[in-house]
Design a protein around this nucleic acid. Structure first.
Lengths: 167, 167
DNA sequence: ATCCCATTGGTGATGTGTCAACTAATGAGC
DNA sequence: GCTCATTAGTTGACACATCACCAATGGGAT
């Protein structure tokens, strides 16, 4: 096994920066959102998905898929949101296993009231600090990394120490 | 109040990409690290800080500062790590309120065994996917956003809707 | 119709992170 | 050498995320 290739100076700068930025950015947005509207970032994401639909109700599974959340996570989270009256769940008629998740009036009010300030915050904190080239480069970076994360055979390629193209 | 400036296409691409990348990247690295070594990412960060010091022990507060963690968080986390034998805490002689946190033999072994694979994973998943310009741009982006996050008067500037330079 | 098993979603345990409230030791001012 | 605000660190309550497992339904193959 070859020696570890550590990160050089520039890579460390980018890596540490990325971690610090994400931590501080989400912490800040979470605190502000919570203070403004009583919603968490997770609540916000759920409510956005329900609002984006033509119908403000979705199959549980479709919602999980749209959010890219595990079902277990969504189940726990909806239980908390339901207790607070933001969403409601009722059994589906088509499939007695299925649940339909709907936005309540309270949930709709909450998201409509919270969204503008939240978007403005993203703009102020992030995009107002970047030029066009940086925005596009950021998008390209994320897409490259996501492509690698979702690449097939990634695990064995990592162990073998070369890229995924088979011999 | 002016109408909300929503994100345009390109900004959404970058923003969603950033969130998705971070979520998937940390999930992946956490799972792999856990499977390889039984450590969480948080454990790893704590152990790295203790290892990077000349002395493998630190004042509790200095450790919290180095990690940029709240004291409460660190206290809870060290309690769990201590239970697993990765670190030890003992009262400081200089200041009877203070605690000295030390790496145990088990903790040292764990980090030394885990670090190389972890670094390689960062390299494979991230830096091998990027060119030099992208790495530097990423660093610049994170620094710009972090500067804004830590800017004084940021909160009132956001409410007022202009930047922080006073009238 | 029956058997099987894949799918839908929920549950409990545990680890993690934040907030608010707390205890104990310190040290400045008198 | 007291008084008392400050500092160091802990604790408990709660929200959140993951894992492993479970219950019920659905939909085939026979």
């Amino acid at each position: 096994m070859a020696e570890t290739r550590w990160l050089d100076e520039r890579e460390q700068r980018a890596w540490r920066g990325l971690l610090a930025m994400h931590t501080q950015l989400t912490a800040r947005m979470h605190r502000d959102l919570q203070a403004d509207s009583g919603l968490s970032l997770a609540d916000f994401d759920v409510l956005v998905q329900l609002t984006d639909q033509a119908e403000p109700s979705l199959r549980f599974g479709d919602l999980a898929e749209a959010l890219q959340w595990e079902k277990s996570r969504l189940s726990h989270h909806l239980a908390r949101m339901e207790k607070r009256g933001l969403v409601s769940r009722k059994p589906s008629k088509d499939d007695a296993r299925g649940n339909i998740v709907s936005l309540t009036r309270l949930g709709r009010t909450a998201i409509e009231q919270a969204a503008p300030a939240h978007v403005e915050k993203v703009r102020h904190l992030v995009f107002d600090q970047l030029d066009e080239n940086q925005v596009d480069t950021l998008a390209a970076i994320t897409e490259a990394v996501l492509a690698r994360l979702n690449a097939p055979r990634a695990a064995s390629a990592e162990r073998a120490g070369h890229d995924g193209t088979a011999a």
